[in-house]
Design a protein around this nucleic acid. Structure first.
Lengths: 198, 198
DNA sequence: TTAGTAATATACCAATTGGTATATTTTAAG
DNA sequence: CTTAAAATATACCAATTGGTATATTACTAA
């Protein structure tokens, strides 16, 4: 059964996630949180142990919804090479899409938590690792199916793609220019078609 | 003549720069600053208008010393294509080098200031623009000297290289793994040799 | 309807925040 | 050595910080 508190908890997370994502952990106060939710400290601390645990829940929520979207998009094809192209295609809308939630949580929390919050940094690392593993798995499947050259190192290539994507996201947000993402996705497509394809 | 205050000012900036870089603007308190410098609020506010101006001075200081190093390294050759290879070579030591100062100031302040501090963000943008302009100039010189293919778009290529570098820096710091930088620099070298070269 | 409990609000806490006015010390010129 | 000015230290400010103990309200099962 879904209790009142569970609904409140979900509501707090949804409301607070973009605030943490935009402002960062230290620059987000409990007052910001109560103001945005319209709730009081009692409700917040009744549902979350402390600010840190709320920030972790918010990060997980953003990543989860992001991952859901990308998997949904990716599953439009069964072909590994098509899947890779669908991933870059997903990121073509990333700037517009993530602007609503205050930017890319992986980039923002990754930088924000470094030297500052061990628990959060750990969560970011886990997510990045998972993304790269999934990318590598798709590439390996492509190799097995003969779509992708056997010369390709799946993990290296996965890391390379992920690195390019994160660079593009950083540049796009810092310079407020979607070009970086579009151009990088073109480069990744080129790489898929000209280097990966068997 | 070099006054006492000028020396103190420089000392404060040097001491405080890595703290701001590591912790971010909001997470760095005036108390952190007085503790690190051994000075009091009087000395800090006697030399800087406020926390924001100090953070800006600290950012400029870090970028200036970083730029000095990269230019010094780059000037080991007169050939544009060699200059490009020397840039990627410089970044091969970037992780170790910037760890001392608490990470890459462009990445850190770029992410930290977004949605938070307009003045700082503006400084970051100016620096990124300058880096890309300088990269583009080198590429153009390479084209004029016949070292680089006339097919190459200097500004696009400059942006592409810069984007890859920033992605590598983010990944290296977030995952605490220098591999991302080394691999990306290999990729950039490959790009220079196989795509740019006339 | 009522009692018990779950959920939220209120009032409060010490510590810290960025910043300032003023007192004190340090410096350099005469 | 003296003195004015420059530089730094001290003491203080209201506002805000994350967090808690307790009071109040909302909900649900009997």
């Amino acid at each position: 059964m879904i209790t009142k508190a569970e609904k409140t908890k979900a509501f707090i997370i949804e409301t607070v996630a973009p605030i943490f994502n935009k402002n960062g952990y230290a620059a987000t106060s409990i007052a910001d949180i109560t103001k945005a939710t319209g709730l009081t400290k009692g409700a917040i601390y009744g549902n979350f142990e402390n600010k840190e645990q709320l920030a972790i829940a918010a990060f997980k929520f953003m990543v989860k919804s992001l991952m859901r979207e990308i998997v949904k998009h990716m599953d439009k094809s069964d072909s590994p090479i098509e899947k890779l192209l669908l991933i870059s295609d997903f990121y073509r809308n990333y700037y517009r899409y993530t602007n609503k939630m205050g930017g890319c949580p992986i980039l923002n929390v990754g930088v924000d938590s470094n030297h500052q919050n061990t628990l959060l940094l750990e969560k970011v690392r886990t997510i990045i690792q998972r993304i790269q593993d999934q990318l590598a798995t798709i590439i390996e499947e492509g190799i097995e199916l003969g779509e992708i050259s056997t010369e390709i190192n799946a993990m290296y290539t996965a890391k390379r793609i992920d690195t390019m994507i994160q660079g593009a996201i950083f540049m796009a947000y810092t310079m407020d220019d979607d070009f970086y993402i579009q151009d990088t996705m073109n480069q990744i497509d080129k790489m898929i078609n000209e280097e990966l394809r068997a």
